[in-house]
Design a binder for these strands. Structure first.
Lengths: 252, 252
DNA sequence: GGAGCCAACTTGTTCAGACAAGTGAACCCA
DNA sequence: TGGGTTCACTTGTCTGAACAAGTTGGCTCC
């Protein structure tokens, strides 16, 4: 996105407005200039301006109703897709030190759920990885990931203290994640969780299960990440026109 | 949305495509017809078709890359904003029985955080509500909500077993929620939580704190909802062009 | 002063056309 | 057979125009 912000007109306009909101020049509750104002100011068509404000609306920064001027809703930047999918990238963007270790990497046939999530034939051999993540030296998250067969070799070849598997996959094999789906719930720590995170068995954990897929929709990994309670919070904003979040009945 | 699906062209097209995906007629991984195909088939302009597919992309149902045909990513409906904001509406949409009781309703000055979240002057009197929610007769969620002063009277007047505060507010006072922000984390059950949910103290809870606001961005309520572990899962999908989910460092 | 109406303004929807940029498959050539 | 090139196709970006629909503030009238 930032690479195009200088050449693509609507991203340029969106970035300028975003800066005004983040800087406080357009405070929360303020009205944005009208579309025709912006169109004149940037000498762009109204369609291009609408695309710019639609971008900000999708980020949850502004809201709109037919007939009334757009208003500023929040004043917080949203993290990028890469930062959500990469623990290391996210932590470093916030100025924290991130470290991690592969505790085990073994090949085994996929379970029924893994095969389903990874869109593989039942019993296909996947790479199962157990990994401990540290934030500023503190054990923060236990990650259990199943990598699809076609990336298994690349992941096996990575060093034990590899900072970001997704970054390495992207650089080494050109495999880039474009889509993700996340399931978030809470559960008590099992004995392995407790030992690794240095907490008592049964302590609350925040679990984020997610599948990452390429631009063609091919699943890359299916992961079960368990965070120590209090270490992270997930945040999502929605509106009557865009509801990215969904609540489901228990699904263990 | 469904009210306009018959009259607004792009929603009509989006709804038809959504049905084809949900029914499996367009299976996961399949290519959508090209924009010009769809435009011809519906005798609409390409712009209108693009708005239709943008709707589905925002729902996470389809993905797209420049130059290549769009592909089907998932086959699940996304729930509406109302269903996310209203526990009762959500449960009933899934065929579950929802019940609830006000355990207490008291007026008191807002705490610093409540005043901030509700955009009120510090110390403004709010209505603090404690509520227990049952799903199919099982105690499932404890809700602690602070209602802004300007809706307090309406909420106080509601019956003790009111099914949905937001629905009643909408019908009685014309106050409708348009925007929401949600913070999701895990924490151990306190003694009050444990007693109400009939679990042991320290058991894992999934917490969803959220603020709801009107179409003009005016906050209505700030709520702390605690779900028994295993009873619900939150789900969110994202892509490199749209990232509604954000991860934050601990924030108790 | 208060209720209701109206007109200017603003966002929502739709159209038709144009060019840029990326994809994928057929094709050719070594 | 393998590798590169070309080309039709598809999505991305942008324009200018028109009308529909909802909001807001000011005005009139009582």
């Amino acid at each position: 996105m930032s690479t195009n912000a200088g050449t693509v007109r609507y991203l340029e306009i969106a970035e300028a407005l975003r800066r005004e909101i983040l800087s406080g020049e357009l405070p929360v509750g303020a009205h944005l200039p009208s579309e025709s104002d912006l169109a004149a100011r940037w000498s762009a068509s109204r369609g291009t301006v609408r695309q710019a404000v639609a971008t900000l609306a999708a980020e949850g920064l502004i809201g709109s109703r037919q007939g009334a001027r757009r208003i500023v809703l929040r004043r917080e930047r949203r993290h990028s897709f890469g930062e959500l999918n990469s623990f290391a990238q996210w932590a470093e963007g916030l100025g924290h030190r991130a470290a991690s270790r592969f505790l085990s990497r073994t090949r085994r046939p996929a379970t029924a759920e893994e095969a389903d999530r990874l869109a593989l034939a039942p019993g296909t051999e996947i790479l199962a990885v157990l990994r401990l993540r540290l934030l500023d030296g503190e054990p923060t998250m236990v990650e259990r990931t199943a990598y699809a067969d076609w990336v298994a070799a690349a992941v096996e070849a990575m060093p034990v203290d590899c900072r970001s598997v997704m970054d390495s996959l992207s650089e080494g094999s050109g495999v880039v994640a474009h889509y993700g789906e996340h399931l978030i719930d809470a559960l008590p720590a099992g004995s392995e969780d407790a030992r690794l995170l240095e907490i008592r068995r049964g302590s609350p954990l925040l679990r984020q299960r997610h599948v990452s897929a390429t631009a063609t929709g091919r699943p890359i990994e299916w992961s079960d990440d368990r965070y120590r309670a209090g270490s992270v919070t997930f945040s999502v904003s929605n509106s009557s026109v865009a509801t990215p979040l969904e609540r489901r009945v228990g699904d263990q």
